[in-house]
Amino acid sequence: MITEAKVQEIAKLAQLKLTPEEVKLFSEQLKPVIEYFDRLSKVDTAKYEPLATPTDIKFREREDVFKPFAQAVERVLANAPDKKNNLFKVPPVV
């Protein structure tokens, strides 16, 4: 059952800050969507293993080695919203 309290609980798990208006709107909009999903509970799936990848592809592993990436630091930091020296700047965590 989707209530405003449930919406707030999920938003916290998803690290999404919602406005009070959004909490109200989402609880109204998600209720029929989740009820629609509930129809699946009636499907008999006892014989079926869950399917995650639709084609029969063999997953490949690779060596965990790096490849050359020119001007790596500059290029990776170019999109940083905040940086200092050659590092990403974040709020204090301790």
């Binding site: 999903f37 699946l40 499907v43 799936t45 079926y48 293993e49 869950p50 399917l51 995650a52 639709p54």
Partner: peptide, 11 residues
Amino acid sequence: YYLKACQVRRM
């Protein structure tokens, strides 16, 4: 929800 959906997906 998720697991059930994946089972119906195989179906």
